[in-house]
Simulated assay, not measured.
Amino acid sequence: MFETVYSSDEWPPGERFDRWREMITQSYLPSVVSCDEAADFRGVAKVLQAGPVHVATLRLPALQVLRTPVHVRRFDPDQYQLAVTLQGRRTMAQGGLEVAPEVGDLVLNDSSHPYESWMLPDRGAVETITVGIPRAALPLPRMKVDRLLAAPMAGGTGLGGLLTQFLVRLVAESESYRPQDTVRLGTVVLDLATAVLAHRTETGGAVPPESRQRVLLVSINAFIERRLGTVQLSPALVAAAHHISVRQLHRLFLPQGTTVSEWIRHRRLERCRRDLLDPRLAELPVHAVGARWGFLVCGGLQPGFQDRLRDPTGRLPAAKPAAADQAAGLKPPEPTRCRPVPRLVGVVVHRELPGLFDAWAVLRPCWFMQNFTDTIETAAGKAGSVSSAPRTLPPSSCAP
């Protein structure tokens, strides 16, 4: 991911606003920028060049931006700008219309026409994400799209919600992307923006089939993420929610090199991994971690779990020292007093989820010793009918 960061902290306090204004004029769009807090100006801009689009994140104080016809003639990238406000208020005027969208709403403006914008901070700052979309890359009638200029569009639900969620995650995780990811991610942003504008202009027929398919896949992934803790989550449920057949759903996942069930299981394992590494959840029993993310008490957590737990060097996380256990709220082991272990946890979990159980012991040694030392044998002795070999539960009782 190619990201450029501009921060006012890079410049001396007395020069920050002037340098920022110069940067905006030369690197972004020529305009007149004014600020009531110029003496103590603090601003940050992050610009991601993602394939066909660019995504700019701005965090600014109270600010006014005026782009005049002179500025348009000086330089015009010929693009639409679709912006969402995450914090504070941003009022925008273009083409004789003025809009003050709520936080989370989307607003469209056009670089080829003059406009004016006011930033009204909340808790000291305004934060926005703006997508720059080349007009030539948008397969929609220009006259119909122009009717959306300076008009609020819902960014919390439907397609607008999908776009906003994707943008927030994109900028939050920008450092983790590789350069080769840029075109793919930028294409998804363009597809989602196109879908939002096509829905508002009722020009869905102009959207290419491959673009509609990519938007559908983003919608499906978002649906899965919201329901990972639901045991009933399945390919059939996902397909029904999106009004497609299960066969069509599987075809969508074929280019991803995985199946729907495998993807659900992968995302659930990642959530379990995150919880195991979270000291705030140190007292949560191992079976509860799985149940929290849709796993029943079966072998669904075992295969490959340790591989997902390993760091980039291939090692499992080191055991916490006693001080870290105490800081996390874990009590030291009591050799002479051990709480009884239920047969379900002490035997079934231990034998059917060895990968997760061993990882749990590595991550939380004090909890493991306190709850399981010298008690698994006792529980196993009481459950004489339990075989030493792992049981195989009916497929219907296991999560995907």
Score class of each variant (00 low, 15 high):
Thr194Tyr: 15
Arg42Lys: 04
Pro52Cys: 05
Glu352His: 10
Val349Asp: 04
Val70Ile: 02
Gly160Asp: 06
Val289Tyr: 00
Gln165Gly: 05
Asp191Phe: 04
Ile224Ser: 08
Ala50Phe: 07
Phe166Cys: 00
Leu190Pro: 03
Arg391Leu: 13
Ala222Gly: 01
Glu270Leu: 12
Glu10Tyr: 06
Leu138Asn: 12
Gly384Phe: 12
Pro312Arg: 07
Glu377Tyr: 07
Val5Phe: 12
Arg89Tyr: 10
Pro342Ile: 09
Glu3Gly: 10
Pro141Gln: 08
Ala318Met: 10
Arg21Thr: 12
Arg364His: 13
Val231Ala: 13
Asp122Ser: 11
Gln213Asp: 15
Ala319Val: 13
Ala319Gly: 15
Pro101Asn: 04
Ala137Val: 14
Ala39Lys: 11
Ala125Lys: 11
Leu149Ser: 10
Leu120Cys: 06
Leu276Ile: 08
Ala154Asp: 12
Ile133Ala: 11
Glu210Tyr: 03
Ser34Tyr: 02
Val362Arg: 05
Ala399Glu: 11
Gly229Val: 14
Thr313Met: 13
Arg212Lys: 08
Asp122Cys: 05
Pro333Val: 11
Glu225Lys: 04
Ser388Ile: 05
Leu277Met: 04
Arg42Gly: 06
Glu270Asp: 07
Leu149Asp: 15
Trp20Met: 11
Ile220Tyr: 15
Leu217His: 10
Arg280Ser: 08
Lys144Gly: 07
Glu175Gly: 03
Ser111His: 10
Gln306Leu: 10
Phe372His: 13
Leu276Asp: 06
Gly205Asn: 07
Met23Cys: 04
Met1Ser: 09
Pro255Gln: 02
Pro303Asp: 08
Ala62Thr: 04
Ala323Asp: 15
Gly51Glu: 04
His199Pro: 00
Gly299Ile: 01
Arg268Phe: 15
Pro394Arg: 09
Ser396Val: 01
Ala193Phe: 06
Leu301Asn: 09
Ser234Tyr: 00
Glu210Asp: 14
Arg247Gly: 11
Arg200Tyr: 12
His54Lys: 10
Arg184Lys: 15
Val218Cys: 08
Ala389Thr: 12
Pro390Cys: 04
Met369Ser: 10
Pro317Gly: 13
Leu60Lys: 03
His243Gly: 03
Asp311Gln: 00
Leu228Ser: 11
Tyr80Asn: 02
Val55Tyr: 04
Ala359Met: 13
Ser219Thr: 05
Ala100Lys: 01
Ile24Leu: 10
Pro152Trp: 00
Met119Lys: 07
Gln94Asn: 07
Val183Ile: 03
Arg343Ile: 15
Thr258Asn: 02
Thr57Glu: 15
Arg212Pro: 02
Phe166Val: 01
Ala62Met: 14
Gly299Thr: 14
Val145Glu: 06
Leu237Glu: 06
Gly314Tyr: 11
Trp360Phe: 13
Trp367Glu: 11
Glu377Pro: 01
Lys46Met: 14
Pro395Trp: 10
Phe17Leu: 01
Ser387Val: 00
Lys46His: 14
Leu162Lys: 02
Gly186Tyr: 01
Gly381Leu: 01
Arg351Phe: 13
Gly304Met: 08
Ala100Asp: 05
Glu10Lys: 14
Gly257Glu: 14
Asn109Val: 11
Val286Thr: 02
Leu269Asn: 08
Thr259Met: 01
Arg337Thr: 11
Gly329Asn: 04
Ala154Gln: 08
Leu301Ile: 12
Gly88Ala: 11
Pro139Gly: 05
Ala198Cys: 14
Gly161Glu: 02
Thr68Trp: 03
Gln248Ser: 07
Pro209Ala: 06
Leu148Gly: 02
Thr157Cys: 03
Ile376Asp: 02
Ala62Asp: 13
Val362Tyr: 09
Ser385Cys: 07
